[in-house]
Write a protein that binds this DNA or RNA. Sequence first.
DNA 1: ATTTTTTTCTAATGGTAGTTAGACGTTTGG
DNA 2: CCAAACGTCTAACTACCATTAGAAAAAAAT
Lengths: 199, 199
Amino acid sequence: MTMSKSDRTRQRILDTAAQEFRKRGYAGTKVNDIAFAADMRAASIYYYFESKEQLFEQVLEIGLRLAFDAVRKAVEALPDTASHRERINAAIEAHLSMLLEYGDYSSANIRNFGQTPDDIQERQLELRHTYGEYWRDLLVKAQEDGQVRTDVDLSLFRMFLFGAMNWSLEWVKPGKMTAAEIARQLAESLFDGIGAQPR
Amino acid sequence: MTMSKSDRTRQRILDTAAQEFRKRGYAGTKVNDIAFAADMRAASIYYYFESKEQLFEQVLEIGLRLAFDAVRKAVEALPDTASHRERINAAIEAHLSMLLEYGDYSSANIRNFGQTPDDIQERQLELRHTYGEYWRDLLVKAQEDGQVRTDVDLSLFRMFLFGAMNWSLEWVKPGKMTAAEIARQLAESLFDGIGAQPR
DNA sequence: ATTTTTTTCTAATGGTAGTTAGACGTTTGG
DNA sequence: CCAAACGTCTAACTACCATTAGAAAAAAAT
């Protein structure tokens, strides 16, 4: 559990890199920017990482893992008696709070994945897919259990859900609303619909 | 209505620039890439545009206007008797089809805005705001008319909706589904909810 | 046809960014 | 203490990239 100085420096570089990549994207971030924000010279970074690209790749992977772990942990923390809807709720809240409150890594991942070099994208695809499967499971179980209408296309719906969550990066101002509040409203809109007429 | 040769070249540059910026982002796109994709040398671009930045700014602005115009036009094409829900439906479909079928400009805008230099962002804010207001109006009118529950926070919901729509850029594969199909499913999920229990 | 204007190109220029070499400190283990 | 291992820095190097100068080609005007 104790971190060597080297490990801590490495971590500091990763942290600031995540911040910078999140703000300015991969191509827009200079190794120098990361170095100065981490209080060192650019050359030192190469003692810890082979290249800017490799550093970037690690940030992306950590981002995905953090989100996945947070979501899984939040769902598993629920009692066995929790309804599927409550599980999905918890998952949404965990994903959102990772993005909005703790998540330079996850945010860097989400904002940059689309413009990431192909070879990196490919190496991350498996983990992404596993994460997607996890959500798919949550939704499928809810549907099987009769808590989600059977005529809803779940893979499509999952994309809408990811979109609504991930887009929050573009508009949420820190301090205004908590992830929990946003999550609650999102889950409510999605489950119950916004329409006034009864079905 | 006839375009001079010069105008057509200018247009060709804008078109290819939109494509490139969409794929690789602002910082990741080289003037040279745009030039070669448009069948010319980089220097020629500077006959038409002051700088890469100015070219980028124009692409962004066109992207926003195209989406706005498409949405407004689609809504106005409906008969006066159309319900608010139908209007919102039409707006969603227009926005989506602009993104997925005709929209390198709009896509470039959406994917890059977050990492755009501040001065450009500021100049685009007014138009963005106007577009947001247009959607706000659609939703508010629907709510006032009793077609949307009164306990739904519309500004939050609007963000969810934009998220679900804009995120489609990250997962829709061309040719698989039409914008219209996606739009219908999205509107249905949102209005009616996915929950199985009656409220 | 010849001049003038418009458009495009080739060839620099200047600056910047990623990366490496190797010297200089600093820590650690004996 | 001393030496080996570790970490950081300064100073290049190289490649690339936005941009400009100005010549050449193409088009339009006279």
